[in-house]
Amino acid sequence: MEDVKKGSVSDFIMSILLLIFGIALIISSLNMKVFNTFLDAPGFFPMLLGIIFIFLGLMMLFSSIRRKGPQQLGHVFGKANMGAFFKHIEFKRVMILIGLMVVYIFGLIGRMHFAIATTIYLFCTMWFLKSTGLVKNIIISVVASIVISVVFRFVFKIPLP
């Protein structure tokens, strides 16, 4: 049942986002330069997309209102529900996994050798996931990073970041 409620709320929010996005698309495409006629102007197709998004947004809005989406907003975003959501183990797990990826991709890669960055990332991620014991974790991280780097760099001759 909770899913049905969440579905109607997420559709409601999505429909508003689609409407805003559609309007923004139309405005920005109308501001694009017209070279010969509007028919082959760069903005023509994005404008059509804007119209389509508004249409789809309205369909979704209508459907979510029928399913009492706006009324459920209070419940889904209520203090009790949101608190539970942020404390939910799955949410925490995903946020930490994403955080680790951000550090790896935007923080480590490019600042040090790819193999070292990868070793650090793999070790931390597997440590967080409790994938295996500490020693095995270190071995897997080091070996996997070296194998990946060597195989791609020298066997497949692909540049590493």
Partner: peptide, 29 residues
């Protein structure tokens, strides 16, 4: 839990290799 993290560096290489642009890794992410 061991296999999936190892895929992450492969996605990074896969995204980077085509255009050799760090920007593409960001796009991928």
């Amino acid at each position: 839990e061991i296999l999936m993290p190892i895929i992450v560096p492969l996605t990074v290489i896969g995204a980077f290799a085509g255009g050799v642009r760090s920007f593409d890794i960001g796009v991928m992410f």
